[in-house]
Design a protein around this nucleic acid. Structure first.
Lengths: 202, 202
DNA sequence: GACCTAATGTTACTCACTAACATTCCAGGA
DNA sequence: TCCTGGAATGTTAGTGAGTAACATTAGGTC
């Protein structure tokens, strides 16, 4: 799996642009792959060579390995949920504001369309398995490991999908006015607040 | 929405039987709706009149309203997560052994096929919204409500899908021998154990 | 310029799912 | 018994996602 050729990167970007544009203008369901292909100046076949499914334009999950490692690095004497929680906090809590310009548009589209939310969960399945494996390797019962991973991932996914509805002020303190037109929301802050709810209640 | 006619109930049952049979024999992906229809002695069209999608034969979620009500009934001064957790415990913890004979077969098939796990999550989306609405109506911030609901539902769904791998002995105490050939697993016990992990750590 | 390979195009297909309309089944009343 | 109205099913024809096999073009290297 060599690094993608420059030409391939360009077409991929063209597809992504065309798709986001059409999705936002006429909706995800009303947009066909043929339309995307035409707008990008390519064929349907080429579309599927760059994205395995129509969903894949919007859904991707690049964080798998980091999370599993971070979870494994937490102290072994913690309860499984707490271990996963702290691991994800370490791996995701410091991401900061969203870097990719298309990320916000993608999230907004996914959040709008219920069927796509399911695709996101499908994409996190691999992450869930990675976390579970890491815990089971340390002697945690498979049932407990799976449940802990699913709970934390569910919380984070849900948090991610509320981001388009969120203003930055929602994250610090309810009641705070918050200047309008705030910039790209801080992904790390959202995740942190979500995982905070799963933490021990002092 | 009147109660379904006896004839409709029979065809629905025939479809379900034929589908489960084919899925188990040759796999979900390798089975076409046309095959199911032929095995059930009906048309493709009739299949889709009884089940909106191919997935729907395996995925259903009848517990929505009970859960939302039970969550709303928990004391308002609890943290959102704890409220959802106790509500779901009340609504689902006492279900007991699985009643429907086909339920175990369905769960096994879903657990095996990754794409179907996503369908399950899609099916719980409505439940998640119901729980969230109940909390928001009591003044809980939407973000916190969504996260709490997603975490608990994620944990329960994951727990459900591990059931085929589980023997009853796994639920009581690791290390317990447990007689082989144990009967249908206790759904309530599985849910209870899953939600227990999300509870306050004393 | 010849050459090799990755990237793209072409064609033809399968399958899930939908719409519009025709047909059959079945209960209850004349 | 016949009839009749509505529910359940069948028929036909389509759309759209995704796949397979094979032909073609572009880009960089010698």
């Amino acid at each position: 799996m060599a690094t993608p050729t420059p030409r391939a990167q360009r077409t991929r970007a063209r597809i992504l642009d065309a798709a986001l544009d059409l999705f936002e203008r006429q909706g995800y369901g009303a947009t066909t792959v043929a339309q995307i292909a035409e707008a990008a100046g390519i064929t349907q076949m080429t579309f599927f060579r760059h994205f395995p499914t129509k969903d894949a334009v919007l859904v991707s999950d690049p964080y798998d390995p980091l999370i599993a490692r971070a979870v494994a690095d937490q102290p072994r004497d913690l309860a499984p949920l707490e271990r996963v929680r702290r691991g994800m906090l370490v791996a995701l809590g410091t991401i900061g504001p969203v870097e990719d310009a298309t990320a916000v548009r993608r999230v907004r589209l996914v959040a709008r369309h219920p069927a796509l939310r399911a695709s996101v969960v499908a994409a996190t399945a691999e992450t869930e398995r990675a976390i579970t494996d890491a815990l089971v390797a340390d002697g945690v019962p498979p049932f407990d490991a799976t449940v802990a991973a699913a709970a934390c991932l569910g919380a984070c996914t849900a948090a991610l999908l509320t981001m388009p509805d969120l203003t930055a002020s929602d994250l610090v303190d309810p009641g705070d006015p918050g200047d309008p037109g705030d910039p790209a929301p801080d992904l790390g802050a959202v995740i942190t607040r979500a995982l905070h709810q799963l933490g021990p209640t002092p």
